[in-house]
């Protein structure tokens, strides 16, 4: 299954980036990645600056480099695709190690590899320094509609439980000698998934009853939460300000 995404990426540490209010982190990550995405691919120097920046970011957040490298494998299929671009792209052809490749295509490869790697690394740092409910809270501070964040909250709370239910059923099947190797042997495992859906739905009904019992009237209550203060916004802004400046200079220069 490649890299499973069941395991949250959060790494428990005490760094300024961990402590920063989630809404500030979300805005900074989005704005920085957008600046990177807009940077012309020919401005190699700009990507060098980005690389140094995220290296500093990883360091500050105390995220192990190995951890980042392992998580970066989620973009591997796209990198593989990017590596093929020069061979299939049209336009001016150049010789590379005796093979004819497209000049545009080579730039295309570089473009995808550089931007995908930087973008994914920023996402990894965001996820490694922010617990999931915090991310959702940041989203609601940023005015993401309440039903969306509320649904996401329940999803995050129960996904491990649901995955465990599915896992237990599979273990029970394996314990009785089930070892499917072909698609047409998938029926029992799909039936387990169906049963899990029914259980999930019924749990939803019980959770709803439990919420009603405690006075739920259709909207999740506002709880006491800290909001990002001025200095946090300023500190978090340093990342996108740097990114946008570099991107703008790169746009003008190239």
């Amino acid at each position: 299954m490649g890299v499973g995404h069941a395991h949250a990426l959060y790494i428990h540490e005490h760094t300024p980036i961990h402590r920063m209010a989630p809404e500030a982190k979300l805005v900074a990550a989005f704005a920085f990645v957008a600046a990177v995405a807009l940077t012309p691919r020919e401005a190699v120097w700009a990507f060098a600056i980005y690389a140094v920046t995220i290296a500093v970011l990883i360091r500050t957040a105390r995220v192990p480099a190995r951890f980042v490298a392992v998580r970066l494998t989620t973009i591997a299929p796209f990198i593989v695709f990017a590596l093929f671009i020069p061979f299939i792209a049209s336009g001016e052809q150049v010789e590379l190690l005796g093979v004819s490749v497209s000049r545009d295509g080579l730039w295309g490869t570089w473009n995808v590899v550089a931007k995908a790697t930087i973008g994914a690394t920023v996402s990894i740092v965001l996820a490694a320094t922010t617990e999931i409910p915090e991310i959702l809270r940041g989203m609601s501070v940023l005015r993401v509609p309440a039903p969306l964040t509320a649904i996401a909250l329940f999803m995050v709370r129960y996904m491990e439980l649901v995955a465990q239910e599915l896992g237990r059923m599979r273990t029970a099947m394996i314990a009785r000698g089930y070892d499917p190797r072909w698609l047409w042997q998938a029926k029992p495992i799909a039936a387990a998934a169906g049963a899990t859906f029914v259980r999930s739905y019924e749990r939803g009904e019980r959770v709803h009853a439990a919420m009603l019992a405690r006075g739920y009237a259709g909207a999740m209550p506002e709880l006491n939460h800290r909001r990002a203060n001025r200095s946090e916004w300023l500190m978090s802004a340093s990342l996108p300000v740097l990114g946008i400046t570099v991107a703008l200079v790169a746009l003008v220069v190239t």
């Binding site: 299954m1 996401a152 859906f197 999930s200 709803h208």
Partner: peptide, 20 residues
């Protein structure tokens, strides 16, 4: 809201589940 949330958890789990 809770129903959609928990079925979202199901979709999430089903997406990472291995099928032969």
């Amino acid at each position: 809201v809770p129903l959609a949330g928990i079925t979202a958890a199901f979709i999430f789990a089903a997406q990472m589940f291995n099928f032969p």
